[in-house]
Amino acid sequence: MERRTRTAAQDTAGRTARRHHGNRHGRSEEARRAILEAADDLLVEKGFAGVTVEGIAARAGVAKQTVYRWWPTKTDVLLDAFLEDMAEDLVPPDHGDVARDLRTYLPWLAYMLSSTDTGAVFRALVAQTHHDPAFAAVFRERCLDEQRRRDRLPLERAVRRGQLPADLDTAAETDLLVGPLYYRVLVTGEPVGREFTDRLVDAFLRRTGLA
C-alpha cells in the first residue's frame, strides 16, 4: 500500500497532545498513524465487514483500548484514515489556467479512484453506504461534501481570475466534468483513461467558450 507522511497539523481534537504508553509505538502520533494505516490496509484486504477494532489494533501493534481512546467505532477510524488520504491525494493543482488544471486533475482523479489503494478504500466505503443508512449520512457529510468542494476548485479559481463568467454554475459544471468518472468507477467499470478525461475537458471548454 502507498505510504504517506501524515503531520500533526492534520490531527483532530488535540489528539497529538496526549502521550501513548503500553505498546511498541512510544509516542501518541506514531500510534495514531499506525492505527490509521492499519485501518486502510485491512479495508483494502478484507472489505468493510472484515475490519474490526481488534484487527486494527493487532495490525497497528497497539492495545484495543488505545483505538477506543480516540475513535468510538471502526467506522470512525476508517473515515478518519480515508479523509486524510483524500486531503493529501486529491487536491486539484493550480497552474493559473483552467484548461491545464482540468487536463491535469481529471486524469489524476480517475487514476486515484480506479487504480490505487485510496480508490479501493473509497469504493469499499461507498459500497457500505448501500447497507447502512446511518453510515451513508455520515459519509456524505464528512467525505463526499468535502470532495465535491475540492472538485469545484479549478472552476472557482478560474471564475476569480476572470477566465470564466462570474455567473457560471460551478456546481453543475463540476458534476458534468467529474460525475462521469465516479459513475464509471463505481457503477459500470468502464475505462477512465486519458482519452476519456480529455473528451470531458474538451466538452467543458466548448460549453464555456474557451475552445
Rank of each mutant, 00 (worst) to 15 (best):
R3C: 02
R6W: 15
R6E: 03
T7S: 10
A9H: 11
D11K: 12
T12A: 12
A13E: 15
G14Y: 12
T16H: 01
T16S: 03
A17H: 10
R18Y: 13
R18H: 11
R19E: 12
R19P: 07
H20N: 09
H21A: 06
S28E: 11
E30M: 05
R33K: 06
R33H: 05
E37Q: 11
E37I: 02
A39V: 13
D40Y: 02
D41I: 10
D41S: 04
L43R: 08
L43F: 08
E45W: 08
K46V: 01
G47A: 09
F48N: 01
F48C: 04
G50T: 00
V51Q: 09
T52S: 15
T52G: 13
G55C: 00
I56R: 08
A57S: 00
A58I: 03
R59C: 06
A60F: 02
A60D: 02
V62M: 01
V62S: 00
A63T: 12
Q65C: 01
Q65S: 09
Q65T: 09
T66K: 00
T66C: 02
V67F: 14
P72W: 11
T73D: 04
D76F: 01
V77F: 00
V77E: 03
V77P: 05
L78G: 06
A81S: 13
F82W: 06
D85F: 00
M86F: 14
L90I: 10
L90N: 06
P92N: 14
D94M: 10
D97P: 02
D97C: 04
V98R: 00
A99R: 15
A99M: 05
W108S: 14
A110H: 11
M112C: 15
M112V: 15
M112S: 04
L113Q: 12
L113P: 07
T116F: 13
T118G: 12
T118I: 15
G119R: 13
A120I: 09
R123C: 09
A124H: 10
A124T: 01
L125T: 13
V126N: 10
A127Y: 03
Q128F: 06
T129F: 00
H131M: 00
P133W: 08
V138I: 06
R140Y: 08
R142K: 12
R142A: 12
C143W: 13
L144F: 03
D145S: 07
Q147V: 13
R148Y: 07
R149Q: 15
D151I: 08
R152A: 15
A158W: 12
A158D: 06
V159H: 09
V159L: 03
R160W: 07
R161V: 08
G162Q: 10
Q163N: 11
L164T: 08
L164N: 02
P165G: 03
P165C: 10
D167M: 05
L168V: 06
D169M: 05
T170E: 02
A172L: 11
A172D: 07
E173W: 09
T174I: 09
T174H: 03
D175Y: 07
L177S: 12
G179S: 14
G179R: 07
P180G: 15
P180S: 11
L181T: 15
Y183S: 15
L186P: 01
V192M: 01
R194W: 01
E195H: 05
D198K: 00
V201Y: 12
D202E: 14
G209P: 00
L210F: 12
A211S: 15
A211T: 13
